[in-house]
Amino acid sequence: MRPFKANGWHLLLLVICLALILPVLFMVANSFKTLQDSYHTMWQLIPLHPTLKNYQTLSRQVALLRLIWNTFFMATLVTLGKLSTGLLAAYAFQYFHFRGKKWVYFAFVATIFIPFTVTMIPNYLVIAKANLLNTALGVALPQLCDATGIMIFLKAMAKIPRSLIESAYLDQIPTHRLLMNIIIPILRPSIISIGAIFFINSWNEYVWPTLILKDKSSFTLPLALQNYISSEGGTNFPLAMALATIMIIVPLVIYMVFQRYILNSISNSGLK
C-alpha cells in the first residue's frame, strides 16, 4: 500500500516537472530549426532539418561576446551593490538602536511595493541630468539597493545567538570587524543564495535598461532580444529562440554552481 501511494505522488510530481521543462526544451529545439520547420513541424522536439544557421546569423549580426560581457558586468554591479547596501543596512537595524527605527524600516520595506511605472520616468530624468545616459552606472544606480535583501539578511542575523555578539562587544571588537569577520561568514549561504537570485533577475532585466542604453555597443542580452521581436515585419521565432538560449547559459551555470545554497537556505542562516 505505502509504495503504491508514494508512487502516486511521484507521478504527480513528474507530471509537474514535465510541464515546467517542456517549454524549455521547446525553446532550445526551435533554436535549431529553420523558419519553415518551426511553423510546419511544431510538435516535433527533434528538428526535421537541424541547422546551426540561427546561431551563425546571430553571431554575424550581433557582437555576442560583447553582449554577454555587458550583461554580466551590469548584473555583477547591481548584485554587489544590493548585497553591500543590504548587509550594512540590516546590520544597522539589527544591532544599532536609534529613534524612529521602526519608521525607517517601514519606509525601506515599503519601497518593494512601489510599482515600476511610478519610478521609471523620474529616475530617467535624474540619470539624464547626471549625464549617465548610455552607461552601465546609469542603469545600475537606481538598482543598487533592494529592500528584500535587507529583510532576508535581517531574518538571518536574528538567528545568530546573542551570546556571540555580546562576547564580541565585551572583547571590544570594532563594528566593521564584527561585520566582516564574524557575521558575514556566518551569513555566507544567505549571501550567496540571495546574491545569485539578484544576479539572475538583473541579467533578465529589460524595461529599465531599454530607457537608458542607446548604443548597440552598450546593449545587454535582453535588449538585443527586442531587436528580434517585430510585430510589423513578423518575428523570426527560431532566431529569437537562439538568442533566448544563449541568454540562459550564464544563469544556468550560476544555478548549477550555487544551487545547493539557493535551494537550501533562502531564509536560513545555515548556522553551524
Binding site: 525553446m27 533578465n204 529589460y206 533566448a244 541568454m247 540562459i248 544556468l252 544555478y255 544551487q259
Partner: peptide
C-alpha cells in the same frame, strides 16, 4: 522545479 525561474518572462511569454 526551480529552472523556469532562471528565465526572462519575455522569453516565457513568447514561448
Amino acid at each position: 522545479f526551480f529552472i523556469p525561474s532562471l528565465f526572462s518572462l519575455v522569453v516565457g511569454a513568447m514561448v
